[in-house]
Amino acid sequence: MKPLISQVGRMQEFSAGKDSLNGHWEMMGASLKESLDTFPNGFLSWLIHKIETFSNRKVILNRPAATLTAIKNFGQQ
């Protein structure tokens, strides 16, 4: 049986954006030269309509929010 071998290293950020989505893409090898769009005021109404039509469900929160806060405030809905 071969001995287990491990390697340890540090990575340096390369992508333009510094949010969670950019970071996850970068960890998988997809570095972005431009940051992804953000939507601090929520998604545009035409996109919300498409999502609701496709999913046959209403969007109940269309703005940035911490996960636990969103669940606390909108979980019952």
Rank of each mutant, 00 (worst) to 15 (best):
L4E: 07
S6P: 08
S6D: 06
S6G: 13
S6C: 11
Q7M: 15
V8W: 15
V8G: 12
G9K: 08
R10S: 15
M11G: 03
M11R: 15
E13I: 09
F14Y: 03
S15A: 11
A16E: 10
K18P: 04
K18R: 11
S20Q: 12
N22P: 01
N22C: 15
G23T: 13
G23L: 11
G23C: 07
G23P: 04
H24W: 13
W25L: 15
E26S: 13
M27P: 00
M28L: 15
S31Q: 11
S31H: 11
L32E: 06
L32D: 05
L32S: 07
K33V: 05
E34G: 06
E34N: 11
S35Y: 01
S35A: 14
D37C: 13
T38D: 10
T38M: 06
F39Q: 07
P40E: 08
N41I: 03
G42N: 07
F43G: 03
F43K: 06
S45Y: 05
S45N: 07
W46F: 09
W46H: 12
W46K: 11
I48T: 10
I48Y: 00
I48C: 01
I48G: 01
H49T: 01
H49N: 03
H49Q: 08
K50H: 05
I51D: 00
I51G: 00
I51Q: 00
E52L: 06
T53Q: 02
T53P: 00
T53N: 02
S55M: 13
N56T: 01
R57E: 01
R57K: 11
R57H: 07
R57Y: 00
K58E: 02
I60A: 04
I60Q: 02
I60T: 11
I60S: 02
L61M: 09
N62I: 02
R63V: 09
R63M: 07
R63I: 04
A66V: 13
T67Y: 10
L68M: 14
T69W: 03
T69N: 08
I71G: 09
N73K: 14
N73H: 14
F74D: 03
G75K: 10
G75S: 10
Q76R: 14
Q77N: 11
Q77R: 15
